[in-house]
């Protein structure tokens, strides 16, 4: 039997429609603990990333003491292999690592999202060609592929962003195409075609608004993935290059401390982990909300 879905409830609320902000706050209030935790984590990171210069005692790549100094009042988390303040670099790292990952993800979504939707709308040969190209690109593990491309083009931040964005856009393409295919078969898209609407209208007005929820969730997941890939590349010494502070290379530079039982190098790694955990918690909640998974059994 079909439950009479949200129709009834919303007809009542339609009379006095609460503001979007109000609704969002109400949803937040009902969110599970893990999601609230995720939101707090993400907000904290955003705050640090935005205000890093005001929160740090020293400059990003300023050498302030000897290498590997211990935690003290002067150097909150000690100093790194070159004698730079760890705490300062940790906060600046938020800015660089998150910023680059965010730009990369946005670019990946721009490329993959638009081509994916177009492939679904156009169908036929255009779809075949785009999909096969993506199949082949995806047949090479992305980390390996980016290693190959970085060898060829050398390591710099713009190259890094473009390479990872392009490789990651294949995943976005797949998802965007798959969810768009579900929308493209809808009668309202057929109606728009029969009305004589152009490609831009169908893409932006008919399809895009209807695939936003899965795309938004995917954005969170992709961001995590990109973030981890960039951290991994930096850790391998192939990502963000010194003296820019970034968490992956901070782990690499100070890894020797671990063999002395010092946890300092784990802090940037932990910072990466915590943010991805936070984002994942939010995405998990969002997915459960939007897929309407009502638990039973």
């Amino acid at each position: 039997m079909k439950l009479d879905s949200p129709t009834n409830l919303s007809t009542h609320t339609a009379v006095i429609r609460p503001s979007k902000l109000n609704l969002a706050l109400r949803e937040l209030w009902k969110a599970p603990l893990s999601a609230k935790l995720g939101i707090i984590i993400v907000l904290a990171y955003v705050f640090v990333a935005l205000f890093a210069p005001w929160l740090t005692p020293y400059g990003e790549s300023e050498i302030v003491g000897g290498p590997f100094e211990l935690w003290s009042e002067k150097y909150l988390l000690g100093t790194d292999n070159l004698g730079r303040d760890m705490f300062t670099r940790l906060l600046y790292g938020a800015r660089n690592t998150i910023g680059i990952a965010l730009i990369t993800t946005l670019l990946a979504f721009f490329i993959g999202g638009i081509t994916g939707i177009l492939a679904a709308i156009l169908g036929g040969w255009a779809d075949q060609i785009m999909s096969r190209v993506v199949d082949v690109l995806m047949a090479i593990p992305s980390l390996i592929f980016s290693l190959l491309l970085l060898t060829i083009f050398g390591t710099s931040i713009p190259v890094l962003i473009v390479i990872i964005a392009v490789l990651d856009s294949t995943r976005v393409f797949r998802l965007a195409r798959a969810v768009s295919l579900n929308v493209v078969v809808m009668d309202y898209v057929e109606a728009a075609r029969l009305r004589g609407e152009g490609l831009a209208w169908i893409t932006l007005r008919e399809v895009l608004p209807n695939i936003m929820p899965p795309l938004v969730a995917e954005f969170g997941l992709r961001f995590c993935f990109v973030f981890l890939t960039i951290a991994a590349l930096s850790f391998l010494g192939l990502g963000i290059q010194p003296p820019t502070a970034d968490w992956g290379s901070m782990v690499r530079d100070n890894a020797t401390l671990i063999s002395y039982g010092d946890v300092t190098p784990l802090l940037p790694a932990g910072a990466i982990a915590l943010l991805t955990v936070g984002v994942n918690f939010i995405v998990d909640w969002f997915l459960q909300k939007t897929s309407g998974l009502k638990d039973g059994q």
Partner: peptide, 12 residues
Amino acid sequence: SSISFPEFFVAY
């Protein structure tokens, strides 16, 4: 949580 951890974090 653990899918969110970078490999090197777990390793160290």
